[in-house]
Design a protein around this nucleic acid. Structure first.
Length: 438
RNA sequence: CGGGGAGUGGCGCAGUCUGGUAGCGCAUCUGCUUUGGGAGCAGAGGGCCGCAGGUUCGAAUCCUGUCUCCCCGACCA
């Protein structure tokens, strides 16, 4: 996408609003990514929307690659299904309940096990329809008592939720492992080192679960892990279709201790010795196995090969898509602003015209702008009539990976300046080479 | 939900104790000068002080109620 800042909608803030405490929240407000409309509820402005879309895209590609199938469920659901599973009462005031004009009880979905299970039941005719994994990327609502930290803990949030259905435990375990490796790849592509940790299963229930945790001082969870986790893991060579190989790989990963405080294992920590690390972390994903917790009460069965009914065994797999925006900023920023990883940046290049009133500068910028567009490089062209300092500050704040700086001094020598946001490194490059350098 | 804090131009704040008709910085608009890291000068616009009652000659300020937001804790993707 190619945008001129003078025609865009990007109301950045010079000062930090008092409502924001953590750095990602402050930067998202200042960089014009979001605006709060109520406690824990945010409007997404153009820049934030683009980052959200990039994260969504990566999540979707890795889900598809893992064999999951995308659907879209409604946000508003009837109460009946939730009564059958017993969760209508169990979920408590966190569930936002709504009554329609006919006094029917409705709710804004906080998660979707019931609906996915019911939809699967209606469509699955036999054991040949197993295994399947269905997912969606959809807004959820949980009426948190105390929303905080911006999108890290909002009430309305965008989540990828997947649900696997298998005929037996071995199959369910493989489905779980496929999501596990997909999550490793997903977070790596976003520039994050998310550590899978033994986790509590929480109100969803079940007996096998990992949380994927990004280390950050502002995280809400206390986490404990072997220092081996500090280096990223290579997942490229893993064949996710080979159940035994995949299980072996994941067992190898999990041989290094990592647990949230609810699941601490003091014996394992002692074994780590000096390699044991403790810090705070942000949960960006969680995978669960929970067997027939929903299929049994909802009466879901399919005929097996011998005609006898099989009750599918399920797992569910969440990724906090909107939370990831905040988590990435927590992990990727400096004093001047956000430092986007390439894969999620809202634009790849900030094209900075230092003298919008100078015909030579503007002509050179227009040429570069067109060249970037032709090359398919997302560029945000700062064509405003502002001084250089203001443009540099804005570009650093919004954190695009590259800045192309066009000024009269450089143009006189036939060069522009190329700055890498992450390192601050700046080099002079002949105008004709700029596009190919990026 | 327990405890604490705060609502005053778009943003950040002062004024509230000791009532007298609203101010500062930034931002915005106009003009001139400037132009490689958030420019300078001059001028201008913009606020029924969260809302509703009450006390008073007079309320941002005092009283009552109410809504909202933030922080700590408990709780959560």
């Amino acid at each position: 996408m190619f945008v001129r800042l003078s025609r865009y909608f990007m109301p950045v803030l010079k000062e930090t609003p008092g409502e924001a405490q953590v750095i990602s929240h402050q930067l998202m407000l200042r960089a014009a990514m979001i605006r709060q409309t109520a406690a824990g509820i945010y409007a997404w402005l153009p820049l934030g929307k683009r980052v959200l879309a990039n994260i969504e895209r990566i999540v979707r590609e890795e889900q598809d690659r893992a064999g999951a199938i995308e659907v879209l469920m409604p946000t508003i659901q009837g109460a009946d299904l939730w009564r059958q599973s017993g969760r209508y009462d169990a979920y408590g005031p966190e569930m936002l309940r709504i009554t329609d004009r006919h006094d029917r009880e409705m709710l804004f979905s906080p998660t979707a096990e019931e609906l996915f299970t019911a939809i699967f039941q209606a469509g699955a005719k036999s054991y040949r329809d197993l295994p399947r994994n269905l997912y969606q990327i959809q807004w959820k609502f949980r009426d948190e008592v105390r929303p905080r930290f911006g999108v890290l803990r909002g009430r309305e949030f965008l989540m990828k939720d997947a649900y696997s259905f298998d005929a037996d435990f071995a199959g369910a375990r493989h489905s779980y492992n496929r999501m596990f490796i997909a999550y490793m790849r997903t977070f790596q592509r976003m520039g994050l080192n998310a550590i899978p940790m033994q986790a509590d299963t929480g109100p969803i229930g079940g007996d096998l679960s990992h949380e994927f945790i990004v280390l950050a001082p502002t995280g809400e969870s206390d986490v404990f892990y072997h220092e081996n986790w500090l280096r990223p893991r290579d997942t490229d060579g893993v064949n996710a279709d080979d159940a035994a190989a995949l299980a072996g790989f994941i067992d190898g990963l999990n041989a290094d201790y990592a647990a949230t405080d609810e699941k601490r294992d003091l014996a394992a920590e002692t074994a780590c010795g000096a390699a044991l690390k403790q810090s705070k972390g942000i949960e960006v994903g969680q995978v669960f196995y929970f067997g027939d917790k929903y299929t049994a009460p909802l009466g879901v069965t399919v005929p097996g090969p011998d005609g006898a009914p099989i009750t599918p065994l399920m797992g569910s797999y969440g990724i906090g898509v909107s939370r990831l925006v905040g988590a990435i900023i927590e992990a990727c920023h400096d004093d001047a602003g956000i430092v986007w990883p390439d894969a999620v940046a809202p634009f790849r290049v900030a094209l900075i015209n230092l003298r919008a009133d100078d015909g030579t500068c503007t002509a050179a910028c227009e040429k570069l702008y067109a060249d970037f567009a032709a090359a398919g490089v997302d560029v945000l062209y700062d064509d405003r009539d502002e001084r250089g300092g203001a443009k540099f500050a804005t570009a650093d704040l919004i954190g695009l990976p590259w800045q192309v700086i066009v000024g009269p001094k450089g143009l006189a020598a036939g060069v522009v300046e190329l700055k890498r946001r992450a390192t601050g490194e700046r080099i002079e490059v002949p105008i004709a080479e700029v596009v190919s350098r990026i």
